[in-house]
Design a protein around this nucleic acid. Structure first.
Lengths: 342, 342
DNA sequence: CTGAAAGCGCTTACAG
DNA sequence: CTGAAAGCGCTTACAG
C-alpha cells in the first residue's frame, strides 16, 4: 500500500486536513472527540507526517545538528546517545556532523548545513564548543544553539556544564584524606578552558588543607597518553617524590600508570594515580583507575532539551535557563590508597 | 538578506528555474555557457538548494541513516567518520540512529524513521547488521541498505566486510613464526558471526603448521574484558601452559593482560598476548598490544559509496558490486615476542 | 537545449 | 472549533 498522506487520514476521519494537522501537532483547540477520531484513523493508516513537507511548509525541520571536533570516541558516543534520547521523545532526529577545525572550509560546511537542512538547533560539543568562528557563523544565521562544556566565553551562549573546579578539588581532598601530602598534578591542554579550572580546583584544595603547591610537582600535559607519560618521568624525578599523581584526564593517568609499571612501582602502594573523565579505559586497566565521572549523557540530554523546549512550548514564553550545571561523582577504584599502601 | 531561492538565481542568471535545477543537479543537457552563468549567480547569492523542497518534489532526501546497536564507542565513531566522509562529498547527510534491539519498539522506531525522513539509504553497523527483524522491515519498505561486517546470512544483502578468517590465520601464523607452539585462543561472542570465522582462522593456521588444537587451550569469551580475564585464568591453569594467547578482540586481550600483571607474569617474556580490532586502548596499555587492524573507516566509506553510487549515476545502470572485502593489517607491538623473550 | 506549469505533502493565516 | 485555499521551494513530465 502506498504511504498514507494527511488527505487519507482526513478522509478516513471525516475532517479537513487542517484538523488532522492540528491534532498531529498537539494543538489544543480540537474537541476530544475529533482528536480521538483523527488519532484512530492515523493509527490505522500507519500515518506519519512527511518531514520534508512539514519542514517546507512550516518553520520547523525537526532536525538537530551535533557539531563536534577532535572526538574522543567514548565521549562523543555518549553525547550522541544523550542527545538522541531526548530528540526521539520529541520527534526530532540528530544529524551527526563531525568537523575538522583545521580545515579552512569549516565555515563553508557549516553554512551549507544551516541553509540546506535548516536544523532547528545546533549542539556544540568539544572542541567545536570553543570555536569562535563557528559560533559567529551560527549566530549570524540565527539558529539557536547550546554549548556543551564550553571552556571559555561562557556567558555568550546557553550552555550546560559540570563544575570542573569543584570536581578537581574533591579528588584532591580525597587524596589528602588518604594521607597524601606530596601530590603531583598533570595539567590538561592549555587551550581547553576546563584545564585551568581543574588546576584551580587542585590548588584550592591543597591550600584549604594547609598544604603548599610545589612547582616541581605540577607538570604541563595536553590530554594525550604521551604527555602523561612524559609528565610522570619528570614528576617522579623530584625530591621528595610524590606519593600520588592526579591527572586532568584519564588518558594522561594511563600514561603515568605506564611509567609506574615500567619503573616497577606498585600502584597504588608505591604510587596512587587518579584521573578525570571516567573513560571506558579507566576501568579496563590494572589496577582500575580512580577518577571523576562526568555526566556526559545527561549533559547532552539537557542540551537537546534546552533547544527543543523553546520550540515545543509555543506561547509559553517562559524564560529558559541559559545555563545548567550538572553533578559529577568521584569514583574510587583500585589505583588509589594511603601512601605506602597502609 | 533573506536566503536565496531558485527563483533568485534564475532571475540573476537570466534563465528559468528549470535550468537552474538542471545545473544544480549536474545534469548533462545544459550548454557550457548557461551552466557557467548559473553557477556564478548561485555563487554570488550564496544559494544552496533547500533540502526539504528537493526531497518533497523529487525522489531523494539526501539523507543516509546509520543504524547501530550496542556500540563500542571507538568502532561506532570510526564508522560514522567514514560514512560522513563519503556522504559529504556527495551532498548527503548522516542521521545517527542508535537503536536498542532489546526494546520492543525497534520496529516502530525504524518504521517511523523510514516514513518521516525517507532516507535514501540505510547503513547497518554491528550489531544491528545481524538483526533479521530490522532487515525485514527495511526490505519491506524498499529502502536500499548496506550491511557492515554482517556475521550471518551474508548473501541476503549488499555488504562490506573484512576477512576475519584470514586475519586470524595471519596472526596465528605470526605467533607460530615467533616460535610459539602452545597458543591459547579466546573465542568471541557466540552470536557474532565473526567469532566463528576468527576461530576457524586460528584452527586453520595451527593445522597448516602441523600443530594440533588443544581443547584445553581454547576458551569461550563474549568480547568483554571480564570474559577475557576469566578465560586467562582457565588457560593458564593447563599443562603445559600456553606461551601465547590470541584473543578474538582487544578488550578480552586486556583482560588477559590484567591477569598476567596480577600473576606477576612478564609480558611478553613469560606470555605473549595478541588481540583483534586495534581499538584505541590497544596502544594505551603497557605493553602495547599486538593486534589486527580493521579498516573500519574505509568499510563505512565503502558502504556509503555503495548506497550513493546507484543514486548519483542515473542512466549508468552499471551493476554495483554487492559485496566488498577490504584488507586488514597485522600490527605488531610490544605484547608479543618469542617464547622466553629470546 | 529551455519555458510554463503542475504537483510533492504539509502549515497557516483567513474566514466562518 | 473547523473549511477552503494559498504557499513553502523545489523537480519533472509536457511542450516547444
Amino acid at each position: 500500500m502506498a504511504i498514507a498522506t494527511i488527505f487519507d487520514v482526513a478522509k478516513a476521519a471525516g475532517v479537513s486536513i487542517k484538523t488532522v494537522s492540528l491534532v498531529m501537532n498537539g494543538h489544543a483547540n480540537v474537541s476530544e472527540q475529533t482528536r480521538a477520531r483523527v488519532l484512530k484513523a492515523a493509527e490505522e493508516l500507519h500515518y506519519t507526517p512527511n518531514q520534508s513537507a512539514r519542514s517546507l511548509a512550516g518553520s520547523r525541520s525537526f532536525l538537530i545538528g551535533l557539531l563536534y571536533d577532535n572526538p574522543i570516541p567514548s565521549y562523543i558516543t555518549t553525547v550522541q546517545m544523550g542527545a538522541v534520547s531526548f530528540c526521539r521523545k520529541n520527534g526530532y532526529h540528530l544529524m551527526s556532523e563531525p568537523i575538522d577545525s583545521t580545515m579552512d572550509n569549516v565555515d563553508q560546511h557549516v553554512t551549507q548545513l544551516l541553509t540546506t537542512l535548516r536544523p532547528d538547533g545546533i549542539i556544540l560539543a568539544p572542541l567545536a564548543t570553543d570555536s569562535v568562528a563557528l559560533i559567529e557563523r551560527i549566530e549570524a544565521f540565527g539558529t539557536p544553539y547550546v554549548r556543551i562544556a564550553p571552556g571559555s566565553d561562557r556567558e555568550r551562549s546557553p550552555h550546560v556544564l559540570m563544575s570542573d573546579k569543584e570536581a578537581a578539588a574533591a579528588m584532591t581532598a580525597y587524596l589528602i584524606g588518604l594521607g597524601h601530602r606530596d601530590i603531583g598534578f598533570v595539567k590538561g591542554h592549555e587551550k581547553h578552558g576546563a584545564s585551568h579550572l581543574r588546576f584551580e580546583g587542585y590548588v584550592t584544595a591543597m591550600r584549604a588543607a594547609g598544604l603548599g603547591v610545589r612547582d616541581d610537582l605540577v607538570a604541563q600535559g595536553d590530554f594525550s597518553f604521551q604527555s602523561g607519560f612524559e609528565a610522570a618521568l619528570s614528576l617522579l624525578d623530584t625530591d621528595p617524590r610524590p606519593t600520588a599523581i592526579f591527572c586532568s584526564n584519564d588518558e594522561m593517568a594511563l600514561g603515568v600508570m605506564s611509567v609506574a609499571h615500567r619503573e616497577g612501582l606498585h600502584v597504588p602502594r608505591d604510587l596512587s594515580i587518579a584521573g578525570f573523565d571516567d573513560a571506558p579505559s579507566a576501568s579496563v586497566v590494572w589496577p582500575p583507575l580512580t577518577t571523576i565521572h562526568q555526566p556526559i549523557f545527561e549533559m547532552a540530554e539537557a542540551a537537546a532539551e534546552m533547544l527543543i523546549a523553546r520550540k515545543s512550548a509555543p506561547g509559553a514564553d517562559a524564560p529558559q535557563p541559559k545555563s545548567r550545571t550538572l553533578d559529577f561523582s568521584l569514583v574510587v577504584r583500585g589505583s588509589t590508597a594511603p601512601p605506602g599502601g597502609a
